[in-house]
Structure formats: structure tokens, C-alpha cells
Amino acid sequence: MTELVTGTGEPAPAPAATQPGAEPSVARVSQWADIRHRFFANKLAVVGLAIIVVLVLTALLAPVLAPYDPLKQDLTATLQAPGGKHLLGTDALGRDQLSRLIYGSRIAVVVGLASILVALTIGIVLGALAGYFGRWVDTVIMRAADIFFAFPLLIGSIVIILLMGRGVLPVVLSLGIFQWATFARLLRSQILSVREMDFVHAARALGAGRSRIIRKHILPNSVTSVLVYGTSNVGIAIVAEASLSYLGVGVDPEVAEWGNMISAGRGFMGVKDFMWTYPSLAIVITALGFILLGNGLRDALDPKLR
């Protein structure tokens, strides 16, 4: 396609443009149809989407899917190998591993999505302020971002959790607070490039006000990449959340949660490996799912890859 891009700059028009008078209503959805087509043409993206759909369904239907109560101890059947009545075996307290794994997906989905939502909200607001206003606003926000950036995610989160106490909410907030800086930076750089594009100049030349320019022109053209990046980062947040639990500073150790399960299997490494391999696998597959989904969305939405 080099000819099409290196020439005087006029690629061949899209096929639709050459057929005069096509159905307007069809044309309106075609941009999304185009994106959908590109997304579903990408096999890895579809795999990622499938993983996430399965994960979310599992979390929603956990009470239906789980064969046992994940918290119910059965001291007559502890540390049973997979198979028989317990498909994935039981832990040291005789709790059904499969049920705990299924219920664990709820924590993963909730904490993963909620913490990224917190991070995106902070990141988008601050990034937009920095990118649009520039000058000292930019300097202050970006230096603050540098400070948050310098903290390793887990260390920073542990500090907050130590201050707030354990639980789902502190985990969500702490992971959110230590991830916003990436999104703010990304949005800021997007805004800086979009702000100089001619369609923004054109809107200003028409007399459009600040808020209209941000709402209609700058954000729609800069925020998608941040949202897409956020999708990929849900996986990272889930890994971080499980790590916190594994380290004993995440959710309550009683709760059916993947990090807790790995932690419970820690003492049985090499002896009862099924205790930690299944939850580990769940974490890896989930994180991979979000990353594949994010990459697929990025490629589908990026006009440069057309």
C-alpha cells in the first residue's frame, strides 16, 4: 500500500464514496460496522473477548455454577486430589476448590473493573485539564503524575491499605490511585496532538467555545485510546489484586479469591500442586483475555491501521 500513502497524499477513496446515492441510514452505521468487522477479523481479539465473556458469565452465575458453598469447610475431606466429588480437589479446610475458583471470579471482575474505573476517572479528568490548559496546570498535574508513577504499584497500594484497613474497597481505591498517572499521561499526549489538528482550528474559527471544542472535538478523538488502554490494564489490575491477597494485604483471607487460594497452596508446593496451579491459571488466562481484548480494540479503532 506504499503507493497509496507516499504519493501526494490522496489514497483511493473508500468504495462507498464512488457509489452515489447509497442509503444514508446504512452509511451512518458503517463506521461501527467497519470497526466491528476489523475486530472480528482478528482471531486473537475474538479469543480475548470469549475469555472475558466466559469470565463475566461465571461471575454472574457463580451461585448456579458452583457445586458447593465456597466457604463451607468439610474437615472430613481435606486436601483431596482432583476428581471424584470435588472436580478440582479440596483445600486444607476441605473447601471445594472449583467452587472457590468460580466465586473468585467475582472478586477478580469487580476489583479489576472498579479499580480501573477509578484510575480512568482520575486520569481522564486530570489528563484533560493538563492537556487542554497547559502552562502551570499542566506542570503541576504532570509532576504529581511523576510522583505516583515512581511508586511501584504494589508497594503504593500496601501503604494505602495499611492506612485504610483490609477489604474490597481499600483494594479498589489503592489500585485506582496508583494507576491513574499512566492514563493521565496518555490522554494528555493525545490531546496535545489532537489540539493542533485543523478540525480544532476550524471549530475555533467558527467561534466555538472552549467546552464545545473539548466535548465535541478533542475528547472524542483522544479518549478512545485511553479507554482501550484501560481495557488492557484490567488484566494487570487483577494480577495486582491477587498479588495483594497473596501477600496477605488484600481481601479477607476467608473470602474465595484467587490470590488467597494460591496463598493457601503455598505450603503445599511440590506436594499438592493442584492447590495453586488452577487459581494461577485462572489469573493468567483472565489477564491475557483483557490484554487480547484491549489490543483487538486498539487495532480495530486505529484509523492508521486501515
Binding site: 464514496a17 452515489p20 446515492g21 452509511a27
Partner: peptide, 25 residues
């Protein structure tokens, strides 16, 4: 330009057609 193009997006047009859209604006 064909008035029925009203619901299309810029990427569906060639460079010359886009310049006409810019002139219309």
C-alpha cells in the same frame, strides 16, 4: 456533492471530496 451523503463520515470520501466538505463548512 450529493446531498444524500449527509450521514457519511469523512473517511468515506476522497481528498477532493473532503476539500469540498471543508468549503461547504
Amino acid at each position: 456533492l450529493n446531498p444524500e451523503y449527509i450521514n457519511r463520515y469523512p473517511h468515506q470520501f476522497s481528498g477532493g471530496q473532503r476539500q469540498r466538505i471543508g468549503i461547504a463548512r
